[in-house]
Simulated scan of single mutants.
Amino acid sequence: MNDYNTRLSSFKRKGSKLEERFEVLKDENNECLEDIINNISENDKDQCIANIGKLGNIMKNTYEMVGEQTELTKKAISVVKELTAVMTHTRTRLDQLEIKVNRTEFLSNYRDWIKRFIDKVKDKLGEKEWRLAESALFYLESGMELTDEELNCIENLKDFLRDVEMTIDDIKLLREMRDKSNALFHSNGQNLMEAQTQLNNPLPDDLKIYKIPLQKALEAINNWRTSRF
């Protein structure tokens, strides 16, 4: 970025010098024209010819300066375009980083709540029943045929989820989100109300599909906790 600032500052200084030279040439041009008019009125042909030659040199210098100014402008525009491209790229990278941070934070925050929900499902169904159901979900997602026992576990899981207004698709999404979470994430001390409230915040597009099953899971946890008192 400093390089661009240096180059633009250099162009600005050169542009200022050209403006000063233009002013000098403008004054010289006006003086020369006035001299030519006087030469004509005084019928001083030799001096008139000399001043016309001088005027030609002034015009030549002016054209050269216009060329310099044009070239300087082109270079400045080129630098501005480069700088704009760099800034656009930087903005894109920052946006991507923000999305990544939001995604990481989201997965980190709700990983623990998903675990609590699944632990409660295990308690309700029984450890063995849940293991069979989870295996059945894996085989189902892999397009494999299920055994009668696995089909029965899936039906039992459906019945259980129906009581909390959830479906097999909801539990699939929760498991998928859990699997996406980094194993190194730790609990962030978030309470249930904070977890529910945070779901109202804007989410990265690829995480929006998890919002509804998460809301249902958190509501189920809240209801289960409330029913104990």
Results as ranks from 00 to 15, higher is better:
126 G>A: 12
110 Y>K: 06
129 E>N: 12
118 I>G: 03
108 S>Q: 15
144 M>V: 01
99 I>M: 02
119 D>I: 06
142 S>R: 11
95 D>K: 15
124 K>T: 14
139 Y>R: 11
137 L>R: 10
109 N>I: 09
106 F>V: 02
126 G>V: 10
146 L>I: 15
98 E>S: 11
131 R>S: 09
143 G>N: 07
115 K>S: 12
97 L>F: 03
124 K>C: 04
95 D>L: 06
140 L>T: 05
88 T>P: 00
113 W>L: 09
139 Y>G: 00
140 L>D: 09
90 T>S: 15
114 I>W: 01
102 N>G: 03
136 A>S: 10
128 K>F: 08
117 F>T: 03
103 R>T: 15
119 D>N: 13
115 K>E: 06
147 T>D: 07
125 L>P: 02
105 E>P: 01
123 D>G: 01
143 G>L: 05
104 T>S: 07
110 Y>A: 04
87 M>R: 13
128 K>D: 10
129 E>V: 15
98 E>W: 10
110 Y>P: 00
110 Y>T: 04
100 K>Q: 13
129 E>R: 11
121 V>T: 06
149 E>P: 00
108 S>F: 00
137 L>I: 02
150 E>C: 06
97 L>T: 14
131 R>W: 07
140 L>I: 05
89 H>Y: 04
140 L>K: 11
97 L>I: 04
93 R>L: 14
108 S>L: 06
115 K>I: 14
143 G>M: 06
125 L>A: 08
104 T>E: 08
131 R>L: 14
100 K>T: 13
109 N>A: 04
144 M>Q: 10
136 A>T: 08
109 N>T: 08
129 E>Q: 11
132 L>V: 12
134 E>W: 02
93 R>M: 14
94 L>K: 14
131 R>D: 12
115 K>A: 10
150 E>L: 04
142 S>W: 00
110 Y>I: 08
142 S>Q: 15
87 M>K: 11
114 I>E: 03
117 F>G: 03
113 W>T: 10
138 F>Y: 11
149 E>T: 03
144 M>C: 05
113 W>F: 15
93 R>T: 12
116 R>V: 05
143 G>D: 09
98 E>D: 14
98 E>A: 04
134 E>S: 10
89 H>D: 13
94 L>F: 04
